[in-house]
Structure formats: C-alpha cells, structure tokens
Design a protein around this nucleic acid. Structure first.
Lengths: 219, 219
DNA sequence: TGATGTAAGTTAGGACTCCTAACTTGTCAA
DNA sequence: TTGACAAGTTAGGAGTCCTAACTTACATCA
C-alpha cells in the first residue's frame, strides 16, 4: 500500500520539522503582537509588563535575575526598571545575598498590574482549549522536550522546569503518575510537569543530565 | 485507581493549557533572540531579513502584502524597504494589479541573503528532530489547529495554510492520506499539510468554515 | 592596610522597531 | 469633475536592545 500513490508531497514538501518551525514562528508572531497590545492597553510597555509579571510570579528578584529570565541584557532591564520606579510600581531594597544587588518588589499597584500581565498569554490557552485532552498532552510533551533542547543550546534560560530541578524524581513508579516532586512530596504525571515553578532549584550538571535521561527512558 | 493518591498537583498546578501557553512563550523568546542574532550576523536587521525571506519564499510582493505577512504596519515596512533598496538588495517595479502599488523583487544578492534567512528557524527544526515521529505528528497537528484558532481571532494572518485554501479537499478518502490538493491534484496526509504554501488561495468565508469543519470531522 | 578582583548596576550612545497622524498620488465610479 | 478609496511616504515619538565605559561595594590576599 505504500508506493501506491505518487506521493507528490513526499517529494515536494518541506520536512515536518521545518513546518513545525514555521508554525511556531507564526504563533510567535501572534504572541508578540498580543503582548504589545495588552501592555499598551494597561499603560505599560511590553517589557515593563513582563517584569511586573515575573516579580509577581516568582517573588522579589534582582536586575540580574530579571535579565536572565527575560533574555535581555542588564542595561535594558535597568532602563525599564527606572521607569517602573518612577511610576511607583516597584521599589528597590537591599539584597542580603549580594553586596551591590537590589531586590525589586512590586508596590500594591504594581502587583495588581503584574497579576493582570500574567494572564496575557491566556489568549493562547483559549486556543489550546479547543484541542482534545489527548492532543493537549501530546502537544505539551513536545513543548517540554523542545524547551529542554533549546536550553541545551543555551537559547532559553534554565528556570522553572521540573526536568532540571533538584527536587524532581522521574519515572520512580509505574502508572499514570510516574514522577515525583520531592519538594512537596507528591506524585506527578507527565502532563502535570511545571514550566515555571517558583520553587525550581537548578540541579548540578551531572545530575541534571542523568535526570533528563531517566525522564526520557519511558517504561 | 483514580483518587488513590492525594493528587497535590491537580489542585495546585495551573491547567495544562496555561502551561502550554507559558511554554510557547519560552520558545518564542528563543525565536526572537535567534532571529536577532542571525540577522545581525548577516548584516541585516531582523525585519529586513524577514522581508527578504518572504520575497524569496512567496515571490514578488507589495508593501501591503508584506505588512500583513509580517504583522507590522505599512510605515514600518516602508522604512525597512527603503534601506533594502539603498543596499541594492531589492528593486521596485509597477504592480499591474494595483494602481499605486509596487512589486518588490530581490536582486541576486538579496535573493541569496533571503534564502539564508529562510533557514534561520532551522535551529528549531533541529530541536524538533529529536522528538519521535509520532510526537512530531501530534505536535504538528496541535500547531495547525492552534494557528487556525488564532486566525479566527484575527491574531495571525490567513496565508499559506492548506486548511484555508480553495484547493484543499479534506477527508475525501479513507486511509493515511485522506486529504487532497486540487492544485497539484495529489493526495495529502495530515502531517503533510502546508503552513506556508506559495500557491495558497484564500477560500471565501462560507466555504472556509465548511472546509474546516469537514477537516476536523475525523472518521 | 592597602591593591586587586569580581559582581551588580548605571550611563551614554546608537541602530532598529513600531506605532499614529497627516500627507501624496494614482484610479475608478458617480 | 469631484470624491472616495487604496497604497505608500514622511514625520515624530516611545520603546527595545545592544556594546562600551564607568561606579561602587565587598572579598581576598599580600
């Protein structure tokens, strides 16, 4: 039955991986526009919104930490933070951990805006909601693996994902919830993995690789 | 067997759709950085690279068409095109279809750069390549549906996808290649669907909706 | 007690992105 | 012939993002 039809597209189409890349590109377009619009609607710039969202999600952070999370350089952060301080949306306080660092904390008003900013990607969640649960699981699994590989290439900051966390124990029991989080001491299924956990603690390199390999070894 | 374990994460974790959204956000971060770096390495700005890539992929386009494809306004395109013309990477010629429009065509050098720019998302294809073929199919299916839904919301331009094309005939035969492309008169499987087909011709609204519904009706 | 180093930020400056608003200019229809 | 429409351009301004060069605090070690 294979070879029965001339299979025009097998020869003339780009490989599926390239088309996935193109598709993600289009989705990225929507995200960019959306976050721009949402931020402007809230009287913020896009990065200001992201900063507030990060502070609300992960607690007080230093400029350095923000620059890593958002994937921009320190001067860019410094600039946006200055504006946020002027607007009285965040305050600085000394960081006990680092000599010259200052922890950024949102004010009441800033926290409210940050909470709203966190929900900006929800327009995508809406689009995802129309997929069947099974499709969502498959989609999510692909995303987790893909992010991990992009992290290997140094293109995505390593934060928040279970699969790089000291507390993560992959495939420790049979059944639908094979993984375990040692932090909250609770079982965890593959589709419950976190992408942005505030308790994430980066595992050291050899352990990190071992955890990933054990995670990928299904069965 | 359900309910056997306390299911901490069922209660304390965000829904999977939200985590998918966050994940896509992270991937978007990598795309943004990557295209910035690649473009700079080629002596272009990010949008200039995108414009050249679009011209190489889809043939001569007008400014208007470019602005729709890239999701930016006409002035932004106009500005970048001016620079590209100064650099002798594209030329303008009259468009027979529209009175005041001008078709943009890459020069030899521009076409070479555009071809390189087209391959910039390949770093993602590499990350995708490590997924199993089955995972890739599922991932791709999710992307196609998601883009379609974002198009409905007007967040992604409607171009290049089979599922909005006059030539697309979904689910017309049983088996692994149920669809058909009337343009090249060839059968088509779900994972061969195109995301960015230059022959795409937008179907009129009632037909478009009907096609989508028939596409979603599996079996 | 200093000299040197390191890490976190800031400032300065420049290229690019991206928008809105206002204008120009061809074509077509009333 | 007048007016509407569509495609572009220009002007102006806010924001993004970088590199390079500084500042400042503490830590270390001679």
């Amino acid at each position: 039955m294979t070879g029965k039809l001339p299979a025009y597209f097998d020869e003339n189409s780009e490989p599926i991986s390239a088309r996935i890349a193109t598709g993600l590109h289009k989705i990225g377009l929507a995200m960019k526009q959306q976050s721009w619009q949402q931020a402007n609607g809230a009287g913020l710039s896009a990065t200001q919104g992201q900063i507030l969202a990060a502070l609300v999600a992960d607690g007080p952070l230093t400029g350095k930490e923000l620059s890593e999370r958002l994937g921009v350089t320190l001067p860019t952060i410094s600039d946006s933070v200055r504006v946020l301080v002027e607007k009285a949306l965040v305050t600085r306080s000394a960081d006990p951990r680092h000599p010259r660092a200052s922890l950024l904390t949102p004010t009441t008003e800033g926290a409210a805006l940050g909470a709203r900013a966190r929900s900006w990607p929800e327009f995508m969640a809406d689009a995802v909601a129309d997929l069947s649960p099974e499709e969502q699981r498959a989609f999510f699994a692909g995303i987790v693996k893909m992010i991990r590989m992009l992290q290997e290439q140094g293109l995505v900051p390593i934060t928040g994902m279970c699969v790089t966390c000291t507390h993560f124990r992959p495939n420790v029991r049979p059944g639908t919830s094979p993984h375990h989080c040692a932090f909250v001491d609770a079982p965890l299924s593959s589709e419950q993995l976190r992408i942005d956990c505030p308790e994430h603690e980066l595992a050291a390199e050899p352990a990190r690789r071992a955890v990933w390999e054990q995670f990928m070894r299904r069965g």
